[in-house]
Design a protein around this nucleic acid. Structure first.
Lengths: 220, 220
DNA sequence: CCAAAAGTGTTCAAAGTACACCCATGA
DNA sequence: TCATGGGTGTACTTTGAACACTTTTGG
């Protein structure tokens, strides 16, 4: 079993999600070279010889895409190893899911709504993106990850619009407010308020220490 | 970026869980050769040149471990790529989680209770096992996966003991019975009964078509 | 004043919890 | 008969859903 072990290249592909204009959106790049030249794809990079998977994912997020480290959330999603997924040979993709506040897109990449099902991304990236979106939808139910889509200080209404965008469903503002503020550690109140452009100013909150939600916040 | 791409071996490592004598147990092998010769480890294999990841995991389960295909549940868990995790060089492990009914251990492998924290498995298998156990615990809450730990026909009490073993908590038999039989598609009743050795005979059920549980069955 | 958005109170229905109680078997 | 485990009924508590209502701003 020593000489006959197959070798693979390992790519780290990123499903970077944000909520942009109340729409769940994914960061896509246009591929420069073959294969799939000119086709939209998830941003990715090959893992280096002495590099950890998590580090490669963080490197792609920070260096290549120019996004700020420390903000947002990054977690491993799944691995994809169909022998035919890359025409160049055996490449296993380790996909990562990143959730970020709505920023301007870094150069060379752009935000695209997740919704249209006729996406036609390169490689098996359509499936990876589907898996990432489903993971994000599921995790909003039982974790406080929604706050990762928000800037450091946010209102309860902003947070609610995150849920509505990710789930594609409306959420009752009144009950949502009580549920969120009543769950210990989900959000922490500041003493600051928005200067109301329309209506009563809203209190600003920051992300709380809790990571899991018990009981969960169920989508219908 | 063509000549300088690092290459890796890919191992598929299996966290095979079962409930054996009311105890959540994992299938371990004793390593034959270096590295970690003689040390307990998760069963695993290298992925072949033209092999899909899922297929390699199924192959390991069926061929190497002699377990019956079709029974039980197999899903990808996560990937582990610390550069130092294998002294032989860069090996990325794609871990899979398998849930099986309580069978006799295949030759060369044996069941070990998951509980003791001083396990000292080879490689980073302690961490992989922890992740697998946590995944199993979490999934019992919102899926019907517990039935995968049971033989084709089982009683509600057997199913309840699965939950108790996996969660390490007691569950009220009466309320559990109602919850399980009242959730559409979780289990389907047969017209057969156990021949009661002690007490009233219990109706036998088979796994139902539902995969997710709404509302979930929460551990306290 | 009105419109709009934030936030609270109240009511009703659904689900979980606790536990009394009955059923069907072996010994 | 009793002991044992299977299964049902029911009262109580907790949680979520719906929505009327008050608060605080801008125009």
């Amino acid at each position: 079993m020593t000489a006959s072990i197959a070798t693979f290249a390992i790519a780290v592909d990123l499903v970077v999600l944000t909520v942009h204009r109340d729409t769940l959106s994914v960061l896509l790049v246009k591929r420069a070279g073959e294969p799939f030249a000119g086709v939209a794809a998830l941003p990715g990079t090959f893992v280096g010889v002495d590099e950890d998977l998590d580090r490669a994912a963080a490197r792609e997020l920070v260096d290549e895409l120019g996004l700020v480290r420390g903000e947002g959330h990054l977690e491993q999603l799944a691995s994809y190893g169909d022998p035919a997924r890359d025409p160049r040979g055996r490449v296993v993709a380790v996909a990562y899911l990143a959730l970020l506040p709505g920023l301007s897109a870094p150069s060379g990449a752009s935000w695209h709504p997740v919704a249209p099902k006729e996406r036609a991304l390169a490689f098996d990236h359509d499936r990876i993106l589907d898996d990432g979106v489903e993971r994000a939808r599921a995790k909003l139910e039982y974790s406080s990850l929604a706050a990762e889509f928000c800037p450091p200080e946010f209102t309860i209404a902003q947070l609610r619009r995150i849920y509505e965008a990710v789930w594609g469903a409306t959420v009752d503002p009144r009950n949502f407010h009580r549920k969120v503020t009543g769950t210990p550690g989900f959000v922490t109140a500041t003493d600051r308020y928005t200067d109301g452009d329309r209506g009563r100013p809203a209190r600003l909150y920051t992300k709380g220490p809790a990571t899991s939600l018990h009981p969960p916040l169920l989508r219908r």
